[in-house]
Nucleic acid binder design. Sequence first.
DNA 1: GTCTTGCGTCTCACATTATGAGACGCTAAT
DNA 2: ATTAGCGTCTCATAATGTGAGACGCAAGAC
Lengths: 215, 215
Amino acid sequence: MKTILSGVGVIDKSMLILAALEQGPLSLTQLVEQTDLNRATTHRLALALDQHGLLRRVDTTRFALGFRLWILGQAVPGAASLATRVQPHLDRLRDRTGESAQLYVRDGNERVCLATAESEQSLRTIVPVGTRLTLERGSAGAIFMQDNPSSGWVASVAERESGVASVSSAVLDQNGETLAVVSVSGPIERLSTDPGALHGQAVADIAIVIAASVS
Amino acid sequence: MKTILSGVGVIDKSMLILAALEQGPLSLTQLVEQTDLNRATTHRLALALDQHGLLRRVDTTRFALGFRLWILGQAVPGAASLATRVQPHLDRLRDRTGESAQLYVRDGNERVCLATAESEQSLRTIVPVGTRLTLERGSAGAIFMQDNPSSGWVASVAERESGVASVSSAVLDQNGETLAVVSVSGPIERLSTDPGALHGQAVADIAIVIAASVS
DNA sequence: GTCTTGCGTCTCACATTATGAGACGCTAAT
DNA sequence: ATTAGCGTCTCATAATGTGAGACGCAAGAC
């Protein structure tokens, strides 16, 4: 993930620390290595984050993400319920198209899979919940990069991964901004080099239904 | 919630902002009112948190917690799985005692309910998941306040709420520190003024089982 | 139509904080 | 006994974050 410079150095550094710990508990020295921050600074910020519950000490020498993040995460408007309410629609899209379907939200310069319905065919794309992908490739990335999103669709062929094609559509919020992106993906063998012709309308239809159901 | 002073002012202020937004989206002016921070400072920190995904703008004038918190929350070691693994044990404790059972984790100067099994009796205590309670009252709070926790139990009668009694026991991690607290609570009519005699052993037994199952 | 109020946003001089070099104590390895 | 590497802490200083106040905009009052 690219380093974000927000203009508030302490927040930038703190986020580096939290991001480093996403992979699992780390010692102070490992944190320093992964964040490239000064050791005293890392120590001081880690203690402060610990006091706020964003970090906690495990087995006396390592830091891990703290429960406060889980609690704040539960309070994010729509995050958990977005995943829950969207699931039946992704299931329906998977059934209608025969391909794997996913929902992505934007997270800085990446997109993250929030919910998924896997195709039952033996050859299929698998994108686990929590997977983070670039915005720079793939039809879902292209949707997030649009300045003025519409309720059309975008297709891509072999952009993110060779042999894979996908179609995506924006889930717009009430202000016409992209809240999430719904996608269908699978092998080029089935989706062809024109996946939009096959499934674009189905994806766009489901995106509108999802938008309505999460309002 | 008491204001925490960690020694890093920007982190302290940022956490005030995130905590204020836990209740739902707020305008800048509302944020300023609830955090008692300077408006320019609040604005600047809110923009920085937005860039990191911890906040997001909703309907052009309000801030809300951002998806990055949900994602980081999913990465907290054990948080979601703690709730999941603990559930059958809370159900068993509820069945064995006939009273509502809860699991709490510490969050700064409060405790938060992570999982619950409600009694089926018509008179029962209800503590929804996510509920935040003080450490200063109740048997679970007393456990969190202990300096050197053991695998005994603590009972309280009409401390947090009149008419309610409870028994709690610490779930200890491998370092002998309190990872969580398991509790049983209900009306004094059933639990008597000596709830520990009735259910203390059952709660302590389950706490040990839970500790083993989340290692 | 004009004026006022309150909002979000931005600037920048300055006060205050955060930084990080280096010291310290501890433990494990040699 | 010595060395290396860890976590922790201090404090002089540099750099950042603060916040008063200006600005533009929109809505409400008159």
